[in-house]
Design a binder for these strands. Structure first.
Length: 300
DNA sequence: GCGTCCAGGTCTACC
DNA sequence: GGTAGACCTGGACGC
C-alpha cells in the first residue's frame, strides 16, 4: 500500500477544509469524521485504473496519502497525478492572505483568520463539480447525495478492489439515454441536462476545465456558465466559488435562511439586503458569507 | 392512506 | 428586466 506525502501551506486547517461544505459527503468522496480522513477515488490520465486513496494529517507540515489496495508501487506518473489532484481538491495552492487580513480586521470574523478557514473542498475536475452542482438544484441534500451516488455506482469505473468506483467520465455519461437518468439516477427533469452536458463535454464542444484559468471577467464567465442547461444564478455562483472567484454570494434557500436567522430575527428579507451587508468585502464576499454561515458546523 | 408542501432552482413564455 | 407557472423526487406533516 503506497504512501505519499504532501506539503501543506502554513495557513491550512484540514478539519475546516473537510467540513467546508457538503462535497466531502458526495461519492466518490468519503469522509471519516472520527479520524478526520478523506477518501477519494482518483482516476484519469496517468492512472491505468481508478485508485482509492485516503488523505490524513501526518504532521504540522505534511499530509499523508495512503493509496488503498492495488499494486505495492505506483508509477511516477500515477503518483504525480494523485498528488496534483489532492492539491487541487484541498485548495493547497490558493493564496488567501488578503482574505485573512480582511477577516482579521473585523471582530466577528477574526476567527476565520485565527483558524485558517476558507479553503472549500472541490473535485479534481470542473466537470465533476458541474454535475454535482446540478444535483444540488431544487432538491434537498438527501436527494443530492442519492443522485450523485447513483451516478458513481452505475456509471463509474471500479478500482482494483471492486469496492469503490470513480466519478463517471463525460464519455460514459454521454453514452446513456435520457431515460437512464430519469429511471436509474432519479434525476427527474434534470435528466436531459445531464445528457446534453455530457455529450458536449465528450465531443469537445464544451470545456468546463478552462473556466479555472479563464481571463474573462467574472460577470462574463458567469454568463458562459449559465449557457449550460440547468445552471442558473445559484449554480453559477457555486461553480465560481469552486473556481476561486468569490464575488457572487451563491444564495440558495439554506444560505438565505441562515442569514435571516443571524441578522434579521429569522424574518425573510430581499436578496438586495444580503448583498448590501456583504458589499464591503469586495471580491471575497462569497467566501465571507459562506464561512460566517457555516461556522457552527465544526462546533456542532 | 392520501393530499399537500417544500427543499442548498431553472426554464420558458410572456409582458 | 421582471414575473408566473411548470417541472421531478421523496420525506415530513396534517388529516
Amino acid at each position: 500500500m503506497p504512501t505519499l506525502f504532501l506539503e501543506i501551506p502554513k495557513r491550512f486547517n484540514l478539519r475546516r477544509t473537510l467540513y467546508s461544505h457538503g462535497w466531502s459527503e458526495l461519492l466518490p468522496f468519503e469522509i471519516d469524521e472520527q479520524n478526520w480522513r478523506l477518501t477519494y477515488v482518483f482516476s484519469g490520465a496517468g492512472l491505468p485504473r481508478p485508485a482509492a486513496a485516503t488523505v490524513s494529517q501526518h504532521d504540522e507540515s505534511k499530509l499523508k496519502i495512503d493509496v488503498l489496495g492495488g499494486a505495492d508501487k505506483l508509477s511516477s506518473k500515477a503518483e504525480a497525478k494523485i498528488l496534483r489532484d489532492a492539491r487541487h481538491i484541498l485548495r493547497l495552492d490558493d493564496d488567501l492572505e488578503e482574505f485573512y487580513r480582511l477577516a482579521a480586521s473585523e471582530k466577528d470574523l477574526e476567527w476565520i483568520a485565527r483558524t485558517n478557514a476558507g479553503r472549500l473542498v472541490r473535485s479534481p475536475t470542473v466537470f465533476e463539480d458541474l454535475v454535482k452542482t446540478l444535483c444540488t438544484t431544487n432538491c434537498n441534500w438527501a436527494m443530492t447525495k442519492k443522485m450523485t451516488a447513483n451516478l458513481v455506482e452505475k456509471l463509474g469505473e471500479p478500482d482494483d478492489s471492486g469496492l469503490r468506483r470513480a466519478f463517471p467520465t463525460a464519455a460514459a455519461m454521454a453514452n446513456q439515454p435520457v431515460e437512464f437518468y430519469k429511471n436509474e439516477i432519479r434525476a427527474g427533469y434534470r435528466a436531459p441536462y445531464f445528457k446534453e452536458l455530457a455529450e458536449k463535454v465528450a465531443a469537445g464542444a464544451l470545456n468546463p476545465e478552462a473556466w479555472l484559468n479563464s481571463d474573462l471577467p467574472t460577470r462574463e464567465l458567469r454568463r458562459e456558465m449559465k449557457r449550460v442547461k440547468g445552471v442558473g444564478d445559484y449554480a453559477a455562483d457555486n461553480l465560481l466559488k469552486l473556481a476561486g472567484r468569490y464575488d457572487g454570494l451563491a444564495l440558495d434557500s439554506w444560505l438565505r435562511a441562515q442569514f435571516y436567522r443571524t441578522y434579521n430575527e429569522a424574518k425573510p428579507c430581499e436578496d438586495k439586503l444580503i448583498e448590501r451587508h456583504y458589499e464591503r468585502f469586495g471580491r471575497w464576499r462569497g467566501l465571507v458569507i459562506w464561512c460566517e454561515m457555516t461556522r457552527r458546523w465544526l462546533d456542532d
